[in-house]
């Protein structure tokens, strides 16, 4: 399928105005753009006011410990063109910080609280930062970070039931007890 014409034009315009690291089509209706974090607010302002991207359908993040970055992702949708733009921003992994978008997209506020809890990203200007979203009384590191070892955490904090002492085949055992064929037996 041909790429969307309006999106192609936008890609060209966008590359002229902003310092775009890369811009590529995911499919004919979706364009991913990576820009430096200091130009992001202007870019979103441009997409919101000059273009028709009025809807923030999703925020997301990708943890990349090898490159020492966290990618923050904004997915914007246009109801007039029916196209999607994915804005990707690199944040420093040690001290991930960005500015809140709650004044443009009110729903971003809730996303930002979740990201703060799960990934430790701080959004300046959001005064509900640090509020509990899903976890209650969590005092460990942000659990969605890739260097958070869940198994180690589980071994430290929970008790496991010890396994069986014998090594009887379960199917055989059931057959001996009930004298009946199991549902999985031939």
């Amino acid at each position: 399928m041909e790429n969307n014409m309006e999106l192609k034009a936008l890609k060209n315009n966008f590359s002229k105005i902003f310092n775009v690291e890369y811009a590529m089509f995911n499919d004919s209706e979706t364009l991913s753009i990576k820009i430096p974090s200091n130009e992001t607010l202007n870019a979103i302002d441009y997409l919101y006011n000059k273009e028709s991207y009025k809807h923030l359908s999703m925020m997301s993040y990708i943890d990349k410990p090898k490159d020492n970055i966290i990618e923050l992702i904004y997915i914007l949708y246009s109801y007039t063109d029916h196209t999607t733009i994915i804005l990707i921003i690199d944040l420093n992994r040690e001290n991930p910080k960005f500015v809140t978008l709650k004044n443009i997209f009110p729903q971003a506020e809730t996303f930002e609280i979740e990201f703060n809890e799960m990934m430790g990203i701080v959004f300046e200007g959001n005064n509900r930062m640090g509020e509990e979203f899903i976890l209650e009384g969590w005092d460990g590191p942000p659990p969605m970070r890739k260097d958070f070892d869940t198994l180690e955490f589980v071994n430290d904090n929970y008790m496991f039931r010890s396994g069986r002492e014998n090594s009887i085949n379960v199917r055989e055992h059931i057959k001996n007890i009930t004298g009946e064929k199991g549902a999985l037996d031939d």
């Binding site: 976890l135 460990g140 659990p143 958070f148 869940t150 198994l151 955490f153 589980v154 904090n157 929970y158 008790m159 496991f160 039931r161």
Partner: peptide, 19 residues
């Protein structure tokens, strides 16, 4: 509820209900 099931290594679910 018995031994954590498929969530045995989840950081946020309990493993043994009878505790």
């Amino acid at each position: 509820t018995i031994n954590g099931g498929m969530y045995w290594d989840s950081y946020n679910t309990i493993k043994m209900l009878d505790l």
